[in-house]
Nucleic acid binder design. Sequence first.
DNA 1: CCCGTTTCTCGTCCTACTGACAGTAATCAC
DNA 2: GTGATTACTGTCAGTAGGACGAGAAACGGG
Lengths: 226, 226
Amino acid sequence: MTEYPPFAVTVDLVVLTVRDDEFCVLLVRRGVPPYQDRWALPGGFVGFDEDLPDAAARELTEETGVPEPVGHLEQLGTYGGPKRDPRGRVVTVAYLALLPDLPTPVAGTDAAAADWLPMSRIADAELAFDHDLILGDGLERARAKLEYTPLATAFCPPEFTIARLRTVYETVWGTRLDPRNFHRKVTSTPGFVESVGRATEGDRGRPAQLYRRGTAELLHPPMLRP
Amino acid sequence: MTEYPPFAVTVDLVVLTVRDDEFCVLLVRRGVPPYQDRWALPGGFVGFDEDLPDAAARELTEETGVPEPVGHLEQLGTYGGPKRDPRGRVVTVAYLALLPDLPTPVAGTDAAAADWLPMSRIADAELAFDHDLILGDGLERARAKLEYTPLATAFCPPEFTIARLRTVYETVWGTRLDPRNFHRKVTSTPGFVESVGRATEGDRGRPAQLYRRGTAELLHPPMLRP
DNA sequence: CCCGTTTCTCGTCCTACTGACAGTAATCAC
DNA sequence: GTGATTACTGTCAGTAGGACGAGAAACGGG
């Protein structure tokens, strides 16, 4: 065992949310070299006695201040090219988190600064390390998962309207969806959402019914992109 | 960098194929402790200057003797619990390979013995380390990918009949499919398969047309499990 | 050569799902 | 009130897919 070369192992997080009809990712600005002053995905080293999902959850709460069981967290993939970190051989396990819009923007604990950046403002190759590659994979995973899972609800608060859920789909996919067909589809797919019985109040227009996420893990039939 | 604890990094392979209407996985019998004489997934350490996909491809050719560009190889997931290997902290990146039935069973180079084991003969928790967990994830990934990608063709030789492709689906999913509806579905999905123009000869019944895999990466619409 | 067997392939209902769009319901601003 | 705005329900037509029927092309046995 000991004759094999040592690797450093980190977790990096692709934390996505929908804010003001924009698809946003949580990034930190690096305060030290390499890639000083560049935006990067939040992340850090895995403790020697720490499991990988635990490390990811720890980093997530450190960066967002959210006491976990909000939203969704899953492994995205592992990136370990020999040249991806100039300091040495670092393998990173990327995790994907989908969160509702958090009122507190972010108070970085161990990073210089952290903020939600809308996708539209992220030019390619602007990120540190291979993080634009990881981010791209995370976006594609999120877009695909909305098709066949009810995970769009992870972007919503505990109670939400069908219109809110629709704007999540529209924002993540970058398309427009017909409100009437979307309403029919969501309410007729078993286990996607369940009615709360109450309605919104005070907005413009007719009040909308409130829903919770349902019990289904998979959508049958799936909600396919146009 | 150096103040962080060193990890060992390995790749493990879930290599699947369809042999004689049975869904099979390539396993090696361990010749040394821990888990001596138990079946395990093939795998090995990642070289210090080696990229992860390269390490997976190298292990695959070492174990099967196939000069790569046959079948399909993709990252499955990473497993790194602190107790998963009694010898120390080992993080393994699992890869999933889908191969056509190989005439040469296998000649293990660095393992005691290697063989194709049908799923029906693998009892739970029989495998070394957490390999039954990894195998389970690989099976589920393979089953799901047949739904929305043309990867069933990775289990077939370069030229195959629709019936052969159907037995792949039936074997992997463990269900029966209607031959007529399956034929219509496959030939009407753009990019799934393309006709070769020739037909089989010498079998029982009417000769079947031969097909190649098409150019599509995704099936539209998907082939959903019953 | 005829005939049954096997397997492949095409065609025909019939139902479910979905895109397009009309129309009704409930609130607010004035 | 009236109009604006948003939520919801309903209709209709086109497509996809499950459940068959039936013909086509090989083989083997009398």
